[in-house]
Amino acid sequence: MIAFESVGKTYPDGTVAVADFDLEIASHESVVLVGTSGSGKTTLMRMVNRMVDPTQGRVTIDGEDVAATDPVALRRSVGYVMQASGLLPHRTVLDNIATVPVLRGTGKAQAHERAAELMEVVGLEESMASRYPSQLSGGQQQRVGVARALAADPNILLMDEPFGAVDPIVRAELQTELLRLQRELRKTIVFVTHDIDEAFLVGDRVVILKPGGHIAQIGTPEQILAEPADDFVRSFVGADRAERRLHLQQVAGREVVVDASGRAAGVLEQGGTP
C-alpha cells in the first residue's frame, strides 16, 4: 500500500507544485493521476521513489516512510516507466532490460536470461535483443521500457505518461497490452497521464487533479462519469461531449446505443457487463 499523508511540495523560488495531498493506494490497485500540466501529477508520482522529496507531509510504502529509506535501494525496488521510454542509448535492448537486476548484483548471465523472458512477456521479438534503442520504433522502445521496469519483479510500478510519445494506434495497442499484463501480474500501479480516456481505460480508480495538486474528484471511472463532482470535472472528462452522452434507440428489435450527435456507438448486449 502507498499512502500520501498531507504531502506538499514548494520549490525554493516559492512555486507551490503540490499544496496538501492525501491519497491511499491499495496493493494490486492501479490508480491514475490525471490532470493538465501544472497539476503536480508527475511531482506526486516521483515522491514515491524519491525522485522528488516532499517539503511537507510524508509518503509511506506499506507503512514505512520513504524518507527513511536509501533512495538508491528504493528506486531499484520500484519499477519506473517514463515518457519516451528513457532507455540508455548506449546499451542494447537486453542490457537495458537487465539494468536493475545487474545494479542489484544479479550475475549478468542470469539477468540476461530473465531479460529474454521479459522480452517475450511484453511482446518483443528475440531478434531485437542485441539492438540499440535508436534502432527501434517508438512503440518497441516503450515495450522495452515496460520490460525494464518489470525486470526486478517490483511490487510497485510507476508509469509517467508512458505512452504519451507514440501515435494513437500504437498507444491503443500498448494500453491493451498493459491491461493484459496487469491481469496477470497484479502490481500496484501509479499511472500519470493527461489523457482522460487513457485514465478511464487503465485505472481501477482515477484521481482528477486541479492545478497545485488539489483533488477535484477520486473515484472509479463509472462513478466519475455518473456523478462528476463539479463543473471542472464535468468539462475535464467531457461529460457534456456528444460522444459521452449516449441514449438508446430501438432499431430492428434491438437496442442501439446512440450518442448526442446521433451517431451509432454500438448495440446493447442483454445481461449487462460481459
Binding site: 534502432q135 518497441q140 500504437v170
Partner: peptide, 25 residues
C-alpha cells in the same frame, strides 16, 4: 569503445516495425 554511436551499428538489421513508427518520431 562506443559501438552504439556509429550511425551504422554492426548488428543493425531491418525488420518489421510497429505501425506508425515514423509518425511517432
Amino acid at each position: 569503445a562506443l559501438p552504439w554511436a556509429s550511425g551504422r551499428a554492426p548488428r543493425r538489421r531491418t525488420a518489421p516495425r510497429d505501425t506508425g513508427q515514423e509518425a511517432a518520431r
